[in-house]
């Protein structure tokens, strides 16, 4: 589903998504697929020693979810740049909500702010994606 940019105003939320909690199996799968084998994401005892009450979700897995929110509306070939600041730690078992807000537009392009928060409204990641509106 693409977004009709003519019908939205700056500051409008153009897309939202729910991020179900990740479990240990999902984090192990991402560790294998990405090659990020830091035990903080896969070993509860290690995470506990580092001060976390549960496994820590890979920041890049959160960014991948924000990327899916973008590609659900714009094909990857239209994305010019995509940046994220990792602001908080998401733990296994925590659900998130994501939002994509129109922040700027120009002839042939648009820029959106991305936000990911826990259901408890804790900030996890924020970012910016720039897209070209022609291929």
């Amino acid at each position: 589903m693409s977004i009709d940019l003519a019908s939205v105003a700056l500051g409008d939320v153009v897309a939202t998504a729910e991020g179900p909690p990740f479990d240990a199996q999902a984090l192990a799968r991402y560790a294998q697929a990405s090659g990020d084998l830091n035990p903080l994401h896969t070993d509860r005892a290690f995470a506990a020693k580092a001060g976390f009450p549960d496994l820590v979700v890979h920041g890049m897995l959160n960014m991948a979810r924000l990327g899916r929110l973008v590609t659900a509306h714009f094909p990857a070939q239209q994305i010019l740049s995509f940046s994220v600041r990792f602001e908080g730690v998401l733990l296994a078992g925590q659900a998130t909500t994501m939002a994509m807000t129109l922040s700027a537009r120009s002839e042939g392009g648009a820029e959106f702010e991305l936000q990911m928060r826990t259901s408890g409204d804790q900030r996890i990641a924020s970012g910016v994606v720039k897209v070209s509106t022609f291929l």
Partner: peptide, 30 residues
């Protein structure tokens, strides 16, 4: 395909044709 599974991507384009937006991170980490 394994990366698509791991990030919950179901669109066949990002499983079989082109890399999804964050896949560069996987390539650089080899």
């Amino acid at each position: 395909a394994a990366f698509a599974d791991a990030i919950g991507e179901t669109d066949p384009v990002y499983r079989h044709e082109i890399a999804p937006p964050t896949f560069m991170k996987v390539l650089e980490g080899k």
